[in-house]
Design a protein around this nucleic acid. Structure first.
Lengths: 213, 213
DNA sequence: TTTAAAAAAGGACATTTGTCTCGACTAAAT
DNA sequence: ATTTAGTCGAGACAAATGTCCTTTTTTAAA
């Protein structure tokens, strides 16, 4: 659920070091700042150097669906550059984010010039298809409780924490349902390990945590 | 929902014509035949020349989720070749299907040798990500009725027909729910055009059709 | 044409999920 | 310490969906 691509990141960092004249810049975004707006024209590709972002689609009925959480080395805007379309989703910083900003023409020329780059890109796109498909299937076909448990496990494993609202948006449900499922999982004793208690602590679920004591 | 990629198809057909010595073959599959099995090792890429297939994930709880319906020019097995993994999903012929079979080593060497091919592939993968993401969001966030109407519209537009079971699997719901929604849409007069009546005719929903008369 | 078997549809009930709302808790201001 | 505004959790009810089982329809055989 938190995607990263260290290969991509290190490629870009090497490229920057060797081509200082190129128009690649570093930008900082405060937590919460939406640096890509769905539907708008975009002419840069962003590669996250540090921090966590969320990539989400806002539907016309006002609801948001989080496609993925993006960490180190993840790319944003490359679909738009390849397909020459406006932004498919919004991207907002969850924590403080530092990102490389690459003009799309440079990105496209890199594809033509560097087969190493193309390979990395093909890998990235493939991974994304696999993850998106797998997740869509999983979330349609399994119970919420099961998906929730998996989501929290991942956060424990990766030592990150996501707000409740974001988790609900990621699961495609309301916060109410999220709370309900959480309660159920707790009632069944799904949170008996220290790492889970840690997650609850982090995700402003302190009240729930107390019940475990 | 029925993906096609005529650019890809014509590239392959030209390539075949110019490289007859290469190990590309044509295969036929009868309707219903599952020519790719989830979890198995695969060493070929398939490009559909004719017919319609479904690409679906079978979850451990016995339910199937249809990722996409594939038509002319769609590729299967390329993710597995690029990422060197076992099959992510099953692929079965819905109608009679003819497909080009390309050994994976040839496919991978094509990526290295032909930048035209790589470009087409990048386009294809990008399109897939866009469609998968958009659909996941849509289906999580909208009512079933809305999604159903969209699905039937697409069938009417593309002059194809999908079985009820497959439509339900595509929407990630049970056939029971599918029937219910269908009835509701009909009750609301959602099927007053001739093209929709045609779809109902084709999809073994003749009984429902009678109600419209 | 009638009958039997198989397949599809739909009713009934249970479960899940969403919406709206109220009440409890928190934190800041006085 | 008291008040007030804001946030969060959860109760109550409605809507949606799944499961199970009965009824209806279709198909094939006699």
């Amino acid at each position: 659920m938190l995607r990263t691509n260290l290969t991509f990141l290190s490629f870009i960092e090497h490229f920057c070091a060797e081509n200082k004249e190129e128009a690649i810049t570093l930008k900082n975004f405060k937590a919460g700042y939406r640096f890509i707006e769905q539907g708008e024209k975009i002419s840069n590709i962003y590669i996250i150097k540090d921090g966590i972002s969320k990539c989400f689609i806002s539907e016309e009925n006002g609801k948001d669906f989080i496609i993925e959480f993006l960490g180190k080395g993840e790319v944003v805007g490359e679909l738009e550059a390849i397909k020459k379309i406006n932004c498919l989703c919004n991207v907002a910083a969850i924590s403080e984010v530092t990102a490389y900003v690459i003009p799309d023409h440079l990105f496209l020329s890199l594809i033509n010039k560097s087969s190493e780059f193309t390979t990395i890109l093909l890998q990235e796109l493939s991974t994304r298809i696999i993850q998106t498909s797998t997740r869509a299937s999983f979330q349609q076909l399994y119970t919420l409780e099961y998906a929730l448990l998996k989501l929290l496990k991942l956060q424990a494993d990766e030592h990150i924490s996501i707000s409740k609202e974001d988790m609900a948006a990621y699961l495609g449900i309301s916060v109410r349902s999220f709370n309900r499922s959480l309660k159920q999982v707790i009632a069944k004793g799904g949170f008996d390990t220290p790492e889970f208690k840690n997650i609850l602590q982090l995700t402003s679920m302190k009240k729930l945590l107390e019940r475990l004591r």
